[in-house]
Protein backbone atom coordinates (compact mmCIF):
# COMPACT_ATOMS: atom_id res chain seq x y z
CA UNK A 1 0.00 0.00 0.00
CA UNK A 2 1.36 3.46 -0.76
CA UNK A 3 2.09 5.73 2.22
CA UNK A 4 -0.42 8.51 1.37
CA UNK A 5 -3.18 5.92 1.18
CA UNK A 6 -2.36 4.52 4.58
CA UNK A 7 -2.03 8.04 6.03
CA UNK A 8 -5.50 8.82 4.70
CA UNK A 9 -6.78 5.61 6.24
CA UNK A 10 -5.22 6.60 9.55
CA UNK A 11 -6.90 9.99 9.41
CA UNK A 12 -10.23 8.40 8.63
CA UNK A 13 -9.75 5.94 11.45
CA UNK A 14 -9.14 8.74 13.96
CA UNK A 15 -11.50 11.42 12.74
CA UNK A 16 -14.66 9.82 11.36
CA UNK A 17 -16.52 9.59 14.66
CA UNK A 18 -15.32 12.95 16.09
CA UNK A 19 -16.34 14.73 12.88
CA UNK A 20 -19.68 12.98 12.84
CA UNK A 21 -20.28 14.05 16.44
CA UNK A 22 -19.34 17.64 15.60
CA UNK A 23 -21.70 17.73 12.61
CA UNK A 24 -24.58 16.26 14.64
CA UNK A 25 -23.95 18.77 17.45
CA UNK A 26 -23.96 21.71 15.03
CA UNK A 27 -27.14 20.44 13.36
CA UNK A 28 -28.75 20.28 16.78
CA UNK A 29 -27.62 23.76 17.78
CA UNK A 30 -28.88 25.28 14.53
CA UNK A 31 -32.13 23.37 14.10
CA UNK A 32 -33.58 24.77 17.34
CA UNK A 33 -32.40 28.26 16.40
CA UNK A 34 -33.62 28.30 12.80
CA UNK A 35 -36.57 25.92 12.94
CA UNK A 36 -39.90 27.17 14.27
CA UNK A 37 -42.04 24.05 14.58
CA UNK A 38 -41.76 21.70 17.52
CA UNK A 39 -40.28 19.11 15.16
CA UNK A 40 -37.10 21.17 14.78
CA UNK A 41 -36.79 21.51 18.55
CA UNK A 42 -37.11 17.75 18.86
CA UNK A 43 -34.38 17.32 16.24
CA UNK A 44 -32.18 19.57 18.39
CA UNK A 45 -32.89 17.58 21.55
CA UNK A 46 -32.15 14.27 19.89
CA UNK A 47 -29.03 15.62 18.17
CA UNK A 48 -27.58 17.08 21.37
CA UNK A 49 -28.37 13.90 23.21
CA UNK A 50 -25.88 12.17 20.90
CA UNK A 51 -22.66 13.71 22.34
CA UNK A 52 -24.04 13.44 25.89
CA UNK A 53 -24.97 9.78 25.46
CA UNK A 54 -21.67 9.02 23.69
CA UNK A 55 -19.75 10.53 26.61
CA UNK A 56 -21.66 8.58 29.21
CA UNK A 57 -21.61 5.32 27.22
CA UNK A 58 -17.88 5.21 26.61
CA UNK A 59 -16.85 6.70 29.94
CA UNK A 60 -19.11 4.59 32.09
CA UNK A 61 -19.96 1.29 30.42
CA UNK A 62 -17.52 0.55 27.72
CA UNK A 63 -14.22 -0.46 29.25
CA UNK A 64 -11.41 -2.04 27.32
Amino acid sequence: MNPTRSAARGLRHTWTIPLLLAVITMLGLLSALLGEQLGWKVVAWVALMVPVATSIWYARWKRT
Binding site: P18, L21, V23, M26, L29, P51, T54, S55, Y58
Partner: peptide, 10 residues
Protein backbone atom coordinates in the same frame (compact mmCIF):
# COMPACT_ATOMS: atom_id res chain seq x y z
CA UNK B 1 -9.39 12.83 25.32
CA UNK B 2 -12.67 11.00 24.86
CA UNK B 3 -14.89 13.58 26.55
CA UNK B 4 -12.96 16.50 25.07
CA UNK B 5 -13.37 15.31 21.50
CA UNK B 6 -16.98 14.17 21.99
CA UNK B 7 -18.31 17.53 23.15
CA UNK B 8 -15.75 19.59 21.16
CA UNK B 9 -18.30 21.33 18.90
CA UNK B 10 -20.45 22.40 21.83
Amino acid sequence: NLLGITVMAW
